[in-house]
Design a protein around this nucleic acid. Structure first.
Length: 108
DNA sequence: ATGCGAAAGCGTCATGTGTT
DNA sequence: AACACATGACGCTTTCGCAT
Protein backbone atom coordinates (compact mmCIF):
# COMPACT_ATOMS: atom_id res chain seq x y z
CA UNK A 1 0.00 0.00 0.00
CA UNK A 2 1.19 3.51 -0.67
CA UNK A 3 -0.09 4.47 2.72
CA UNK A 4 2.80 4.14 5.09
CA UNK A 5 2.99 5.15 8.69
CA UNK A 6 2.36 8.77 9.47
CA UNK A 7 1.40 10.03 6.10
CA UNK A 8 -1.65 11.73 7.50
CA UNK A 9 0.61 13.94 9.48
CA UNK A 10 2.44 15.28 6.50
CA UNK A 11 0.51 18.52 6.76
CA UNK A 12 -0.12 18.56 3.03
CA UNK A 13 -3.38 20.43 3.43
CA UNK A 14 -3.31 24.17 3.77
CA UNK A 15 -4.40 25.30 7.22
CA UNK A 16 -6.66 27.84 5.56
CA UNK A 17 -8.91 25.05 4.34
CA UNK A 18 -9.84 24.32 7.93
CA UNK A 19 -11.11 27.27 9.89
CA UNK A 20 -10.74 25.41 13.15
CA UNK A 21 -7.07 24.87 12.57
CA UNK A 22 -5.78 28.24 13.59
CA UNK A 23 -2.18 29.32 13.11
CA UNK A 24 -0.27 29.07 16.34
CA UNK A 25 2.34 31.50 17.51
CA UNK A 26 5.51 29.40 17.62
CA UNK A 27 6.99 31.38 20.50
CA UNK A 28 3.91 31.33 22.65
CA UNK A 29 4.29 27.76 23.82
CA UNK A 30 7.29 28.60 25.97
CA UNK A 31 5.51 31.44 27.67
CA UNK A 32 2.46 29.60 28.88
CA UNK A 33 2.33 29.01 32.61
CA UNK A 34 -1.05 27.40 33.22
CA UNK A 35 -1.40 29.12 36.56
CA UNK A 36 -2.97 32.48 37.09
CA UNK A 37 0.17 33.78 38.75
CA UNK A 38 2.25 36.36 36.99
CA UNK A 39 5.82 37.16 37.85
CA UNK A 40 4.73 38.60 41.22
CA UNK A 41 2.89 35.49 42.36
CA UNK A 42 4.03 33.16 45.12
CA UNK A 43 6.98 30.94 44.24
CA UNK A 44 5.65 27.59 45.42
CA UNK A 45 2.50 27.36 43.26
CA UNK A 46 4.54 28.41 40.26
CA UNK A 47 7.01 25.59 40.81
CA UNK A 48 4.10 23.23 41.30
CA UNK A 49 2.51 24.27 38.06
CA UNK A 50 5.82 23.96 36.24
CA UNK A 51 6.16 20.47 37.64
CA UNK A 52 2.61 19.71 36.59
CA UNK A 53 3.37 20.95 33.11
CA UNK A 54 6.52 18.85 32.86
CA UNK A 55 4.56 15.81 33.98
CA UNK A 56 1.82 16.48 31.48
CA UNK A 57 4.30 16.95 28.64
CA UNK A 58 6.10 13.78 29.58
CA UNK A 59 2.88 11.78 29.67
CA UNK A 60 1.73 13.19 26.36
CA UNK A 61 5.12 12.45 24.80
CA UNK A 62 4.73 8.83 25.81
CA UNK A 63 1.13 8.77 24.63
CA UNK A 64 2.11 10.13 21.23
CA UNK A 65 4.81 7.48 20.86
CA UNK A 66 2.37 4.74 21.77
CA UNK A 67 -0.25 6.15 19.46
CA UNK A 68 2.19 6.17 16.53
CA UNK A 69 3.33 2.68 17.32
CA UNK A 70 -0.25 1.41 17.30
CA UNK A 71 -0.98 3.23 14.06
CA UNK A 72 2.06 1.69 12.36
CA UNK A 73 1.02 -1.72 13.58
CA UNK A 74 -2.52 -1.19 12.30
CA UNK A 75 -1.33 -0.02 8.88
CA UNK A 76 1.10 -2.88 8.49
CA UNK A 77 -1.66 -5.28 9.50
CA UNK A 78 -3.86 -3.81 6.75
CA UNK A 79 -0.99 -4.12 4.27
CA UNK A 80 -0.61 -7.78 5.13
CA UNK A 81 -4.31 -8.30 4.66
CA UNK A 82 -4.22 -6.63 1.25
CA UNK A 83 -1.37 -8.91 0.19
CA UNK A 84 -3.26 -12.00 1.32
CA UNK A 85 -6.47 -10.96 -0.42
CA UNK A 86 -4.64 -10.12 -3.64
CA UNK A 87 -3.07 -13.55 -3.61
CA UNK A 88 -6.44 -15.19 -2.97
CA UNK A 89 -7.93 -13.21 -5.80
CA UNK A 90 -5.22 -14.37 -8.21
CA UNK A 91 -5.75 -17.97 -7.18
CA UNK A 92 -9.51 -17.75 -7.65
CA UNK A 93 -9.12 -16.17 -11.08
CA UNK A 94 -6.77 -18.96 -12.09
CA UNK A 95 -9.18 -21.56 -10.78
CA UNK A 96 -12.06 -20.00 -12.67
CA UNK A 97 -10.04 -19.94 -15.87
CA UNK A 98 -9.18 -23.61 -15.49
CA UNK A 99 -12.81 -24.55 -14.88
CA UNK A 100 -13.88 -22.60 -17.93
CA UNK A 101 -11.30 -24.44 -19.98
CA UNK A 102 -12.80 -27.74 -18.89
CA UNK A 103 -16.51 -26.96 -18.85
CA UNK A 104 -16.88 -23.64 -20.53
CA UNK A 105 -17.66 -24.92 -24.02
CA UNK A 106 -20.50 -27.08 -22.70
CA UNK A 107 -22.21 -24.11 -21.09
CA UNK A 108 -22.01 -21.89 -24.14
C1' DA B 1 32.02 13.35 -0.81
C1' DT B 2 28.29 16.36 -0.93
C1' DG B 3 24.01 18.81 -1.72
C1' DC B 4 19.11 18.11 -2.10
C1' DG B 5 14.29 16.62 -1.81
C1' DA B 6 11.21 13.18 0.17
C1' DA B 7 9.92 10.41 3.82
C1' DA B 8 9.94 9.19 8.55
C1' DG B 9 10.18 10.44 13.28
C1' DC B 10 9.56 13.46 17.20
C1' DG B 11 7.60 16.88 20.65
C1' DT B 12 3.99 19.88 21.44
C1' DC B 13 -0.63 21.90 21.26
C1' DA B 14 -5.60 21.60 20.61
C1' DT B 15 -9.47 19.00 20.86
C1' DG B 16 -12.61 15.03 21.12
C1' DT B 17 -14.19 11.30 24.07
C1' DG B 18 -14.84 8.37 27.94
C1' DT B 19 -14.78 8.13 33.11
C1' DT B 20 -15.50 9.56 37.78
C1' DA C 1 -17.69 19.77 35.74
C1' DA C 2 -13.13 18.08 36.11
C1' DC C 3 -9.94 14.96 34.75
C1' DA C 4 -7.14 11.56 31.95
C1' DC C 5 -6.15 9.65 27.74
C1' DA C 6 -6.05 9.23 22.53
C1' DT C 7 -5.24 11.33 18.37
C1' DG C 8 -5.06 14.90 14.44
C1' DA C 9 -2.30 18.82 13.05
C1' DC C 10 1.75 21.49 12.94
C1' DG C 11 6.65 22.65 12.79
C1' DC C 12 11.14 20.99 13.30
C1' DT C 13 14.92 17.46 12.95
C1' DT C 14 16.88 13.22 11.27
C1' DT C 15 17.46 9.69 7.91
C1' DC C 16 17.60 7.90 3.31
C1' DG C 17 18.22 7.53 -1.59
C1' DC C 18 19.81 9.70 -5.56
C1' DA C 19 22.15 12.86 -8.86
C1' DT C 20 26.25 15.40 -9.54
Amino acid sequence: MAVTGDETEAGSVAAGDFPNCQQRNPTSRLLKTESGFGSYGPQKPLEDSLQKRELRLMKNREAARECRRKKKEYVSCLENRVAVLEQQNKTLIEELRALKDIYGHKVE
